[in-house]
Simulated assay, not measured.
Amino acid sequence: MTDRDSSTVLLRKNATCFINVAAYRRVELDVEAFEPPGGVARGMFGTRGMEGIGGRLTLTSTALWFHAHRLNFIRAEFGIPLDQIVEVRNASRGQSRQIEVVMQSGARPRFLVWGVPTVIAAIDAARGRAR
């Protein structure tokens, strides 16, 4: 399944996804992949022990996709089906504009993205249509 499946693209934004690289290499969407390694407390911007992977966030009518751009060493690519999203919340701190996607599995991917209210509203609207 890719963002090019028979889905309608609703929103595209440049974004950075924060990933625990060691855990992500084992299992992509596991809870550990989005938590700091070794239980390290989150830093001032919520990124301590995490790798920021630059790329693009694409919202379709069926899923929220993240595709890393080619300049990254880690080529993280994954999709979160809209029916697996429990909540999308503003996780911004200071000047760092972030959203946190809470999934049914307990995973909480975080994305650094501009236009947080717009992104959250678009995801919530897409989730409403998908139900």
Rank of each mutant, 00 (worst) to 15 (best):
G49A: 03
E28S: 08
R129W: 08
R75A: 15
G38V: 04
M44D: 10
R26I: 12
T62V: 04
L112V: 13
L71K: 14
W114C: 11
S96Q: 13
W114D: 14
L71Q: 13
T58V: 12
V27G: 06
L82T: 01
N90V: 12
P37F: 15
L112E: 10
P37V: 11
V9M: 11
A68W: 07
R12P: 00
G128S: 11
V102Y: 03
R75S: 14
G115I: 08
V116L: 05
V31G: 07
I120L: 04
V9W: 05
I123F: 06
A63K: 00
L64T: 00
L10E: 09
R12E: 15
A22T: 08
P37H: 15
V21S: 15
G46A: 08
P109I: 02
S61P: 03
R129M: 09
F34I: 06
H67A: 13
I85E: 00
F73D: 15
D3V: 07
L71P: 03
L82Q: 02
Q84V: 06
H69G: 14
I85A: 02
R75H: 15
H67R: 14
L57P: 00
G38D: 10
T60Q: 03
V113M: 09
H69W: 13
V113W: 02
S6Q: 12
N90C: 06
V31R: 13
R129P: 00
T8P: 02
D30N: 09
A63T: 00
P36M: 09
V9P: 05
R131F: 08
G46D: 10
W65N: 01
K13D: 07
Q104D: 08
G54R: 10
G128N: 11
P37S: 14
S6G: 13
S105N: 09
I74G: 05
A122V: 04
D124W: 01
R75V: 06
A126E: 00
T58K: 00
Y24W: 13
V101R: 03
V27N: 11
Q95K: 12
S6H: 11
E77R: 13
I53K: 01
A125N: 06
T58N: 02
R108Q: 10
E32T: 05
F18P: 00
V27Y: 09
L82I: 04
F45N: 05
S105M: 04
T8L: 14
G79C: 11
L59Y: 04
R110W: 03
G38L: 12
P36T: 09
D83E: 13
E28H: 09
R56S: 11
I120C: 03
P37C: 15
Q104L: 08
E35T: 09
D124V: 03
I53A: 01
R97T: 05
G79Q: 05
R89E: 11
R131A: 12
G106W: 02
V31I: 10
R42C: 04
G54V: 08
A130M: 04
F66K: 01
M44R: 12
V116R: 02
G43Q: 09
R56A: 08
R110H: 08
A130E: 03
S7K: 08
G49I: 00
A68Y: 09
A33W: 01
L71M: 14
A121C: 03
V86R: 11
G43D: 12
